[in-house]
Amino acid sequence: MITAGLDLGSRTIKLVLFDSGVRSSEVIDSGLKPLDRCRRLLGDKQYDKLVVTGYGRDLVAPELSGATISEISAQAAAVRFLYPDAASVIDIGGQDSKVIRLNEKGGVLKFEMNDRCAAGTGKFLEIMARALELTIDEFARTSLEAKRSVTLNSLCTVFAESEVVSLINKGEDAHAIALGLHQSVVTRVSGMARRVGVTGQVIFAGGGAKNACLVRLLEDKLNLKITVPDDPQITAALGAAIIAANGKNQGE
């Protein structure tokens, strides 16, 4: 049986076709009409069952005859499939960040989610990179090259952006600003991780895991080794496809 997992995020749409393993995967921008993009993405692809996750799941699933699952459950299923000994998940996406602790069977034991504020998310970093006139890849590299950091006074995206502009106008080094911004995200996420009680093998999923500076800073802050999947951006879609194949969430 071939199953499809669709993850409709705030920035991108991810599709995974699954049949005991990943048959194919695609990532496209969400755009202004995500339902139309989902339809085009699925196109004439052949699959037996579709499960949709992500912030837009309730919008598109009924139109595509798909079931829905939370991102928390989707990430748990994908991570345990990829890493049978995984105990914790950190997921930094475009719109939110999540920390999940798994039980012995791979089910969700405890989690915390930041979805009320852009601070601690990929969107925050994207806005700050733009304020520094850098691409998101250049932003991460600039941070890694920094010899020191600047501590920002605000985690609010609007005020932080104004603060960045002010620092630039004062001649502050872009490397130091970029590192300080990454550190502010890591401070928020590591606080969530400590409250959840991350332990054991920690998997960093979501688009944020492609940022090498975030990986390094999280490892330093938590004093833990962090594992990044080969394609961390598609893990939620993979989990949705796995749940479609299993008929229920792993560990339940």
Rank of each mutant, 00 (worst) to 15 (best):
residue 119 A to R: 11
residue 104 E to K: 15
residue 119 A to H: 09
residue 113 M to Y: 05
residue 117 C to W: 11
residue 113 M to H: 04
residue 121 T to P: 08
residue 100 I to Y: 01
residue 106 G to F: 03
residue 121 T to K: 08
residue 97 S to C: 15
residue 103 N to W: 09
residue 112 E to W: 04
residue 93 G to C: 13
residue 120 G to A: 08
residue 120 G to F: 02
residue 111 F to S: 10
residue 117 C to T: 12
residue 111 F to Q: 03
residue 119 A to T: 12
residue 96 D to I: 12
residue 95 Q to Y: 12
residue 94 G to E: 10
residue 102 L to A: 06
residue 103 N to F: 03
residue 108 V to M: 00
residue 91 D to Q: 06
residue 94 G to H: 12
residue 104 E to D: 15
residue 91 D to Y: 12
residue 100 I to E: 02
residue 91 D to I: 05
residue 90 I to H: 04
residue 104 E to C: 03
residue 96 D to H: 12
residue 111 F to M: 04
residue 104 E to N: 13
residue 112 E to C: 00
residue 91 D to P: 07
residue 115 D to I: 05
residue 96 D to T: 11
residue 104 E to L: 13
residue 105 K to F: 04
residue 105 K to Y: 08
residue 104 E to G: 02
residue 98 K to C: 04
residue 99 V to A: 05
residue 113 M to W: 03
residue 121 T to D: 08
residue 95 Q to R: 14
residue 98 K to M: 06
residue 97 S to Q: 09
residue 118 A to N: 06
residue 96 D to K: 12
residue 94 G to Q: 12
residue 98 K to P: 11
residue 108 V to L: 01
residue 92 I to E: 04
residue 111 F to T: 02
residue 102 L to H: 03
residue 112 E to Q: 15
residue 116 R to F: 12
residue 106 G to S: 09
residue 111 F to V: 02
residue 118 A to E: 05
residue 117 C to R: 06
residue 107 G to K: 07
residue 90 I to N: 01
residue 98 K to N: 03
residue 91 D to L: 09
residue 113 M to G: 06
residue 114 N to P: 06
residue 114 N to E: 12
residue 98 K to Y: 10
residue 94 G to M: 09
residue 111 F to L: 03
residue 107 G to Q: 09
residue 103 N to E: 09
residue 111 F to H: 13
residue 97 S to F: 00
residue 101 R to G: 08
residue 112 E to N: 08
residue 115 D to Y: 12
residue 95 Q to P: 00
residue 103 N to D: 15
residue 99 V to W: 07
residue 102 L to S: 01
residue 97 S to Y: 08
residue 115 D to N: 15
residue 118 A to I: 10
residue 114 N to F: 02
residue 101 R to S: 02
residue 92 I to T: 06
residue 117 C to G: 10
residue 93 G to Y: 07
residue 99 V to H: 06
residue 96 D to L: 13
residue 104 E to M: 07
residue 121 T to W: 03
residue 118 A to Q: 02
residue 92 I to K: 09
residue 92 I to P: 08
residue 102 L to R: 06
residue 106 G to I: 06
residue 102 L to N: 01
residue 92 I to Q: 07
residue 93 G to Q: 11
residue 114 N to S: 13
residue 102 L to D: 01
residue 116 R to D: 11
